[in-house]
């Protein structure tokens, strides 16, 4: 048999319609988690099934798809999802942020600012920002309904009481369009400011937890904080050992068992583009610190 055993982009049409309706409601109510009938996908929960279902529902043959995992185009999760859509939808794939029309991401926002017409699809493990404060879904739903978000501030305050500063470094809660408190997925808080007033549409899919939510373009997204403890971006105080960037988000790489380490850009496409550009000075090995 030569006919493919599955539909374009894997999901059947009724499932796509259900997801598409959820996406439209999610865009109309920015930051609100729309329940959807998440399907079993040919990959386990935790591997981005929510993001994959959102991508499958929006993807068309003219799209160019980029998939990143912690900023990297070449880790297992990114490679397998890129191949999955290359095979089931026949779409063109890329590693270049500027070429992509749809970018599926696990836990990073690309360094290159996104443009109008691009769509960023986040893989989300736990969509409910109140879940670790209140385990009951009935209660968290009520708290969102009543805009009762005092508990999140208590959590941030406890950080300050215990550590002297807000110690939450990833999945840092935000308020979208002045209404819903939202989990931006486990992106580093370094990326939080990129969520606000983006030119691109941002969609979030949580497969196991069966929720879809969205931030439309040009929407105010505010990281929660206190007047005397304002939100602060954080990155390793170093520059990339490969491209020399001193403003990008860095990964710490352990290089030996004697405390040797180096810092490199988490966004591989950003780092490669900088190294390919002839005008950029390279700081090869300069940043390798010995402990």
């Amino acid at each position: 048999m030569n006919a493919p055993a599955y539909n374009f982009a894997y999901l059947d049409e009724q499932t796509k319609r259900m997801i598409r309706r959820a996406i439209l409601k999610a865009i109309a109510i920015p930051g609100y988690q729309v329940p959807f009938a998440s399907r079993e996908m040919p990959m386990p929960y935790g591997w981005g099934t929510g993001g994959v279902q959102v991508t499958a529902a929006i993807l068309g043959p003219a799209d160019v798809l980029k998939v990143i995992d912690q900023g990297s185009d070449d880790t297992t999760n990114a490679v397998s999802i890129r191949k999955f859509f290359g095979r089931t939808a026949g779409v063109r794939t890329t590693t270049h942020t500027t070429e992509a029309t749809v970018i599926q991401t696990r836990h990073r926002v690309p360094e290159t600012p996104l443009k109008a017409g691009q769509i960023l699809v986040y893989q989300v493990p736990i969509p409910e920002p109140l879940r670790f404060l209140e385990p009951r879904e009935t209660e968290t739903r009520r708290m969102h309904a009543l805009e009762e978000y005092g508990l999140v501030h208590v959590k941030l305050y406890e950080d300050i009481a215990r550590h002297g500063h807000i110690a939450t470094t990833y999945a840092y809660p935000v308020k979208v369009a002045g209404r819903y408190v939202m989990d931006p997925s486990p992106i580093p808080k370094f990326d939080n400011p990129k969520l606000s007033n983006s030119d691109a549409l941002q969609l979030f899919g949580a497969g196991r937890e069966k929720r879809i939510y969205a931030i439309p373009p040009h929407t105010a997204v505010v990281s929660l904080d206190f007047e005397d403890h304002p939100f602060e971006q954080w990155r390793h105080p170093a520059s990339c050992a490969l491209c020399g960037d001193d403003a990008s988000f860095l990964d710490e790489v352990i290089t030996d068992d004697r405390g040797g380490r180096m810092f490199v850009c988490s966004d591989t496409d950003h780092c490669e583009s900088r190294r390919a550009a002839p005008s950029q000075p390279t700081v090869q090995d300069a940043e390798v610190a010995r402990g």
């Binding site: 374009f8 049409e13 796509k16 319609r17 598409r20 996406i23 439209l24 865009i27 529902a57 929006i58 993807l59 068309g60 549409l201």
Partner: peptide, 9 residues
Amino acid sequence: AQATFRAVM
């Protein structure tokens, strides 16, 4: 349906 959905989205 995909193209129409993208227009609506």
